[in-house]
Amino acid sequence: MADQEFYVRYYAGHIGRYGHEFLEFEFRADGHCRYANNSNYRKDSLIRKENDDKWPRKNVVGKQELEIRLGNEHISFETAKLGSLMEVTDSADPEGLRVFYYLVQDLKCFIFSLIALHFKIKPI
């Protein structure tokens, strides 16, 4: 497993009054970590979409994406921004969306800790 390519990428953003604003980060197996806030980003779309059929579609508020690659497994999810757990509970797939909701929070928590400790700044 350690020899397989692995990365996790998360994106949350919207296009609004101030242009394309977003937060994006990525962890890679070789130890690289990328973090971006508020810039333009183009992604290729060769990735299998999975399990997000019943999740809220992206909307005017924006969208979130989570992409994970582990060897030949390459999955991605896209949904609307979730402001509260209520939106998760009220969705058509509360169980799946709840996993996504908490995983995203845990990932954010991790990268914000790393950034805060490394730079002594508060991200976002």
Binding site: E24, D30, H32, C33, R34, Y35, A36, N37, N38, S39, N40, Y41, R42, I115, H118, F119
Partner: peptide
């Protein structure tokens, strides 16, 4: 870099360091 606005994750590292996403 795929990002236009990327925070330098290695403050103080030598400028001669290559693009660290290049593998």
């Amino acid at each position: 870099s795929r990002y236009d606005n990327e925070i330098d994750l290695e403050p103080g590292v030598d400028n001669i360091a290559p693009d660290y996403m290049a593998v």
